[in-house]
Design a protein around this nucleic acid. Structure first.
Lengths: 341, 341
DNA sequence: TTGAAAGCGCTAACAA
DNA sequence: TTGTTAGCGCTTTCAA
């Protein structure tokens, strides 16, 4: 059997309380006894039982990351940041994958009741009024990522500004028929990006054409932020009379599919169709995609840092951090033209 | 405060033992009392405390996934499979990211001693003799993924056969100067893939040229399986006198970097340099990369399934599953030529 | 079939 | 400064 705190105590000739104190390097302990205990620990290769500890302190040293299909490239970048920060604080991460956003509550319920984790990072997923209340009432730490909420802590990005930048860039390249491929509007970021697109059109006196807005995954239960959806949307866009000569696409993964569709149709980017994506995930570099950069790594780090803070001090000021975006120019729109400006 | 098993018992007018039995739907309980208890549970919105349960049963219902920089695209595919199967069995996954393979033991030690998880999936990482012994002695469930071991359970892929297929394909396209870009040889798969490459050259009477083998990340502490490393390696390859006209690259991510290097040098693929990668991750589709497919999703699923099995029955037959690979032809080598054969 | 009670391995309050 | 003890919330004997 594995050694317990009793074995260590016996070996060191002290009480278990003392061992516990050494373990949590609390209060004043004679350096001498401390060394004795440390010795015993080493000899027995003792390591505290995580569950027992968790039960006794009512802290697990784990946090839940709840996200939709974390296997998308987008979340990967975010996870890098989360991962780095979490390691720093010696926390462990439990991943929960939510297939259907409508079932988010189920996971929120579990994490709240099971008490397997000390806090929750809810990524790109909606939280219902009901669970917002429950979390608030329980004082259970939760931070929203890639999402906003009036009464909860959050880390997000200026989606409207980003979409505005993207659309403006396309117009500045001389395009007057500028379309948009957006994801499902039940996604808040998708909604806001649409606003930014419309605003940019307006400010530049380019008319908004209804048919130039194509929503991905219209007839499926997916959210639209995937490659196939982008592919399909571009196919549809290409079939339009007087089709756009430039398109702002609400995510890089969708843009990847769209580029493929263009390629299959024998169209060149940006000559025949200019593209600006959103996210600036690693893939965008591979594809030479002009896109809107959002600091995913930094967002992940910030979210974890704040969550840890909330777990520590129960009274924390609310954080509603909103990172700004910037345009990254690559091949799919405006590389050379911009240089000539 | 959250309701405990005592609250439920009181509410239902039974002892806590009975509630516990209902929770674990064990033994014979009067349907009537069972309903009463179930009712009380629902009314109080009771849910067992995961830590308390874990402590009492000495089972956590969690498994550790230990992997190197899980934020690479390769692991993403694997995680998809792991994720799917894990959900099926109602397990949770705790992710551990190992930056430096040499520190793998630290994580193995923690998981073994802390008992936070019921089993371990060790992905693409080496296990030392010492820890192999400890795990075996403790009877602690562990399954290696993308790795093999004589005395431990594993799920892997036929790396030699895959490399052989890739190299043979290049030769069959008429190339006689066929190079290889490999990852660091401390990686077992990298070693084996090199063997497959050499074997294919030999069987096809193509001489092995020392300088045509470029090892990625030679002067860094990384493992070579990354984009930058592939980029650098291709740059080096291009500087060779009588440079190869075709290259087998040990992973798709490296190939992505290599393609970029070719592009920057104004070289066309496959005309100026044919490429075959390895892994067939999603990225390969985006890039039109000819590559060797390994069933990552299926491997993840299989590994989890077996681990769960081991956790359940302590005496399980050892599993050393080795999946076979196949060639996927895309643009970077052999698309048209093959059709003309 | 069910209830009572003894742990699981730890932390923390209380004494000494 | 240190030891003792009472929980933390559950499972699981052991009796009844």
């Amino acid at each position: 059997m594995k050694p317990t705190i009793y074995d260590v105590a016996k070996r060191a000739g002290v009480g278990i309380g003392t061992v516990s104190r050494v373990l949590n390097n609390s209060s004043q302990i004679t350096p001498e006894t401390k060394t004795r205990v440390l010795h015993a620990i080493r000899e027995l290769k003792y390591q505290p039982h995580a569950m027992a500890r968790g039960l006794a302190r009512n802290k697990t040293h784990m946090m839940a990351i709840i996200l939709p299909s974390f296997t998308g490239y987008f979340y990967l970048e975010l996870l890098r940041g989360i991962q780095q920060e979490i390691t720093k604080y010696q926390y462990d991460m439990v991943l929960y994958n939510v297939d259907n956003p409508d079932r988010t509550d189920l996971f929120l319920q579990r994490t709240l009741r099971e008490r397997r984790v000390d806090g929750v990072l809810l990524v790109s997923l909606p939280i219902s009024e009901k669970y917002k209340e429950r979390y608030l009432r329980a004082g259970f730490p939760i931070v929203l990522v890639d999402n906003m909420h009036d009464e909860l802590d959050s880390v997000s990005v200026e989606n409207e500004q980003g979409a505005y930048l993207a659309t403006t860039h396309l117009i500045k390249q001389g395009h007057s028929r500028v379309g948009m491929i957006d994801a499902q509007l039940k996604s808040i970021p998708a909604q806001i990006r649409l606003n930014g697109y419309k605003k940019a059109l307006k400010d530049n006196h380019v008319p908004f054409v209804e048919s130039y807005l194509v929503i991905s995954d219209t007839n499926t239960d997916k959210d639209g932020f995937n490659r196939q959806a982008g592919y399909d949307a571009m196919k549809q866009m290409l079939g339009l009379p007087d089709r756009p000569t430039a398109v702002f696409i609400s995510s890089d993964v969708q843009a990847a599919g769209a580029l493929r569709a263009l390629q299959e149709s024998g169209l060149k980017t940006p000559q025949d169709m200019a593209i600006v994506g959103f996210d600036d995930i690693e893939l965008a570099q591979y594809l030479g995609l002009t896109t809107i950069h959002q600091p995913l790594f930094e967002m992940g780090r910030t979210a974890v840092e704040h969550l840890i803070h909330m777990i520590g001090n129960h009274e924390t000021e609310r954080l509603n951090r909103c990172f700004s975006t910037h345009l990254v120019i690559r091949d799919s729109c405006g590389a050379k033209q911009l240089l000539n400006n």
